[in-house]
Design a protein around this nucleic acid. Structure first.
Lengths: 153, 153
DNA sequence: ATACATGCAAACTGTTTGCACGAAG
DNA sequence: CTTCGTGCAAACAGTTTGCATGTAT
């Protein structure tokens, strides 16, 4: 993908975060902006441990406590989505201006696949209207056996 | 709901479990059948700790280790579904012959709502066919604010 | 100058593991 | 009688918390 568009997104989300922090009266610390930038450059799913190591490799020293704290804020701000897939630890991913998608996880090889579906949005809207429930986020995960693992059986 | 139909379901799932254990060469221990029966009488979502206490109150003594072990088997056997909602601990629920449903969780009051959607099945089938992926289970969770909490704001 | 955020380590919590005993096959 | 399952406690892993230090406001 072009580096250009990636930079643009980072500028936008940085601005969004700044506004969110001001609105909430939180402080604009360098760590918070660094973490946001790194997440949007990384662009993939990650768990806290993996990301912590990733930062360490780039000589960026931020403690795990701060990482957890900041991720909570980014989720609140709607800039990051948190998923709790079956296997132990939470997974995060950037969400701003990125294609909304769902996940399918192979229970054999643990690989995560992504797919999107417009019909899903319709289901969500229907539920919102019928139940007077305001959906802010959702997780749709399919568990099963992928093509490769099916062939190995 | 009529006690009658509940008993019928318990008889069926007990038979299913027996067959599954034989097929896999696992032992038919009383604990395994007791846990299955209690889950199908309970009929609601539960986490391990809550269920452990529930059993203790009924003077049924089964250790947590056995509970975890047995739940894994029941999930394998397709008699119980495991959900990993955002908040820490895993939730389980009986699945045999019970209406397939999805969940909506209020992020304020943490209440869990259930709803079902036939369209969801279509989406799942479409994904299976397009990707040669065999779906064995799925989780669809909406997070947001329920009617009651909206009114309190 | 005054909190609030960070970093570190210790605490916590849900789950897994190791081992001795007991029961299913 | 052999092996697997259970119960218990200890271990583990991801996350949270408490406190001293540092820094945004």
């Amino acid at each position: 993908m072009p580096q250009h568009s990636c930079d643009e997104v980072i500028i936008e989300v940085t601005e969004n975060l700044k506004n969110y922090l001001i609105e909430k009266g939180y402080r604009k610390t360098p760590e918070r902006f660094t973490i946001l930038k790194e997440i949007y450059e990384y662009r993939e799913h990650f768990d806290v441990d993996t990301f912590y190591t990733h930062l360490k490799n780039k000589k960026i020293h931020i403690s795990k406590a701060t990482l957890y704290n900041t991720l909570d804020i980014l989720v609140e701000a709607g800039l990051v989505v948190k998923h709790q897939f079956g296997d132990s630890c939470a997974q995060y991913e950037p969400s701003y201006r990125l294609r909304k998608h769902s996940h399918a996880i192979c229970i054999k090889c643990k690989k995560i696949f992504e797919f999107s579906s417009e019909e899903l949005q319709k289901i969500i809207h229907k539920f919102e209207e019928e139940n007077d429930f305001e959906v802010t986020n959702h997780t749709f995960v399919l568990y099963g056996i992928c093509r490769d693992c099916k062939m190995k059986m």
